[in-house]
Design a protein around this nucleic acid. Structure first.
Lengths: 331, 331
DNA sequence: CTGAAAGCGCTAACAT
DNA sequence: ATGTTAGCGCTTTCAG
C-alpha cells in the first residue's frame, strides 16, 4: 500500500485534487462541509503532503542550511542547538553541515544544499571561500551570518558585540586591580579581531603599556602551549584573558601544570560563556555572549528574508555581559 | 537569469534532455564526444540537478534524519558530529532534529522528515513513542538505533557494549583496591540499564555486598545533588562510578564542595569518554565508548539499508576500553 | 547511440 | 464553491 497522494484523498472525498490542495493551503474558497470531509479523510489515511512536489512547484522547502566551521569549539554546537530549537518552533528543519574551514568543502556543501533546495543559509563563521560568498550575495540567496560581521558584503549579520566584549574584559580586570595582563587570542578569526581591538583600546585610553597578545588556534592544546610560554616569563602577568572559552581552558591547564593556582597566583577569564565555564574548576569567570538570543534572531531574520525575498542588510549587535565566577580575584 | 535546467543544457548541446540525464547518471550508452560536450556545457552553465525533481521521480534524497534526545549530554553532539562527517564522505546530508525526549515532538518531527523525503533515520536514544517506532518498523523505513538496542524491535542497532562497560568499571576499581564503591546512574535509559547490570554482576560474582546505586537525570546539577548526599554518609565510598561523563562531572563537583580532593580522598571514574574528561581537573579516568566508530558504522549501515531496501537486523556491539587519567588512584 | 513522451505529486490560473 | 488543465525538473521505458 503506497503512501496516499492528494489524488487518493480527492477520490475518496469525491472532490478534485485542487480542492484538497486548497484546504491544505487554506487558499481559495472551500465549502465548510467539504473542508471538514477532506480533513477527516486526510486524517484517516494519514496523508502527508510530499514536500518534493511542492518544492518543485516553487514553494519553500522549510529547511535551513547551517554551516559550522569546526566542532572543536563548543560554542558552535551551542549555536546549532539553539538554532534548531528556534527553527523547529517556526516550522523549519536544519541541515547541519560542517566545513572545517576548508574552502573546497564550503563550495561543495553549499552547492549540495542548494540542489536540495534549502531555503537559506546560516553561516557561523568566516567562509574562506570569498568567491562563494560573492556568488551567494549576487544571487540574493537568503543568508545570515552569525557572530561574524562582513561589512564588505551585503549580508545580514547578528553577533555579540566583540569589540565591547574586549573592552569589558579589560575594564573588569582593571577593576580588580590588574595591570600586568596578557591575552591569548584566536588566530584568523573576524570576531577575534574585534575582541582584540576592544581590549587594546582600553589600555590605550588609560595610557598603559599595551598588553601582551599571543595567538593560537581554538584548541585547548595550542592555547596551553602558548600560555605555558607566557607564564614562564620573568615578569609573569597577574591575569590572562582568553579570547574564547576554549582558549581560557587551555590557559587554566597551563597554569595548573606550572603549579600556579587559580585565582590565587593568577586570574583567568574567558569569553563566550559556553557550558565549559561551569565544568572547569574553579568555574570560569567570563564575558558572556548571548548565544541563544543570537541564534534565535538569526533564524528569525533568515525566515523573514525567505518569506519576503531578498536580503534585509541589518546588522544586529547584542551586548555582552560579565558573568563572575571563581577564576579571577581582586589583587 | 534562472537556474539552468536539464533542458537548457540539452538545447545548448543540441541533444535531448534524456541524453543529458543519461550522462549525469552514467546510464545507458552515450557517445564519447556527446558526453564530453554535455559535460562541458554543464560546467559552463554551472548546472546543478534539482534534487526535488529526482526525488519526486523516486530517487534518493541523500539525506538522513538524525534524532537526538537532548543536548545536555555532550555525547550526543559527538555522535552528530561524527555522523555528519561520515555522511558527508558518503555524499549524504544530515537533518538534525532534537526531540527533548518528548513523544509528541518525536511524532511531529518524524512526520516532517518523512514528508521531506529523508531516506532514513538514525535514532540516538530511546524514542518514548513506541507507536511511532512500531510504525517505522512496519513500513520498513530505513532506520538504525545508536547506543540503544531494542531487542523488541526489528531495528538495526549499533552501540558500545554497555554491559561490558559496567563490568570494566567494576573490575578497574577492584584492581585499584576499592571495595566500598557507589554508582550514580542515569534514570530511564536503556544504555544505563546495561551499564548498571554489568556493574552489579561483578559484585555478585565476587560475592561482595552490592554497590550503592543512585539515580539522576543526565545533568551535572542533579548528579551533584545525589553525590552530595552519598558522600555525606558515615561509611563514605572510596570510589564513585558515574554512569556517564556528565554524571561523573557532577560527582567531582560534589566532592569539591565537600572539600574532598580527587583522587586522594575519593576516586571517580566516568563512562563515554567525551571531551569533558579532558577539560575537568583532574582529568577524568573513564571507560571509553568508541563514539566515532559507532557513528560511522551507523551511517554506513543506514546507507546500506537505503541502497538495498529494508532492514538488515544486525546488532553491532563495540567493546569499550578504559582510558586512565588522573581521577582514580590505587588504594 | 539518441530522442519522444509520459508521469512522479502538487499548485495555480482559469473555467465553470 | 469546485473542477480542468498545464507544468515545475527530472527519469525512464520504448522507439528509432
Amino acid at each position: 500500500m503506497m503512501k496516499p497522494t492528494i489524488y487518493d484523498i480527492a477520490k475518496k472525498a469525491g472532490v478534485s485534487a485542487a480542492t484538497v490542495s486548497n484546504v491544505i493551503n487554506e487558499r481559495g474558497r472551500v465549502g465548510d462541509k467539504t473542508r471538514k470531509k477532506v480533513l477527516a479523510i486526510m486524517d484517516e489515511l494519514q496523508y502527508r503532503p510530499n514536500t518534493a512536489a511542492s518544492v518543485l512547484k516553487g514553494k519553500a522547502a522549510f529547511t535551513i542550511g547551517f554551516f559550522v566551521p569546526d566542532m572543536l569549539n563548543p560554542v558552535y554546537m551551542e549555536y546549532v542547538k539553539h538554532a534548531e530549537e528556534r527553527a523547529q518552533e517556526r516550522g523549519f528543519s536544519i541541515m547541519m553541515c560542517s566545513t572545517e574551514n576548508d574552502p573546497v568543502k564550503e563550495r561543495l556543501q553549499a552547492d549540495v544544499l542548494r540542489q536540495k533546495n534549502v531555503d537559506g543559509f546560516i553561516i557561523t563563521s568566516k567562509f574562506q571561500n570569498e568567491e562563494l560568498l560573492r556568488e551567494i550575495e549576487r544571487e540574493q540567496y537568503p543568508s545570515v551570518c552569525i557572530a561574524h560581521e562582513r561589512p564588505d558584503f551585503q549580508f545580514d549579520s547578528v553577533s555579540g558585540n566583540d569589540w565591547e566584549a574586549g573592552i569589558m574584559a579589560a575594564d573588569y580586570l582593571f577593576s580588580l586591580g590588574h595591570t600586568n595582563i596578557a591575552m591569548i587570542a584566536e588566530k584568523d578569526s573576524v570576531s577575534s579581531y574585534g575582541r582584540i581591538e576592544g581590549f587594546k583600546e582600553r589600555f590605550r585610553k588609560k595610557e598603559m603599556k599595551q598588553p601582551l597578545i599571543r595567538y593560537a588556534e581554538a584548541s585547548i592544546d595550542q592555547a596551553k602551549a602558548m600560555a605555558l610560554n607566557l607564564l614562564k616569563q620573568d615578569d609573569r602577568p597577574t591575569a590572562v584573558f582568553g579570547g574564547n572559552d576554549v582558549l581560557a581552558v587551555g590557559i587554566m591547564q597551563a597554569a595548573r601544570t606550572l603549579g600556579l593556582s587559580i585565582p590565587e597566583d593568577i586570574s583567568v577569564i574567558g569569553l563566550d560563556d559556553t557550558f565549559l565555564c561551569q565544568i572547569v574548576s574553579p568555574q570560569l569567570t567570563a564575558i558572556a555572549m548571548p548565544v541563544k538570543k543570537i541564534s534565535y534572531r538569526a533564524v528569525d531574520l533568515l525566515i523573514e528574508q525567505i518569506e519576503k525575498g531578498g536580503t534585509l542588510k541589518s546588522t544586529d549587535l547584542f551586548p555582552p555581559v560579565v558573568i563572575e565566577r571563581d577564576s579571577a580575584r581582586k589583587l
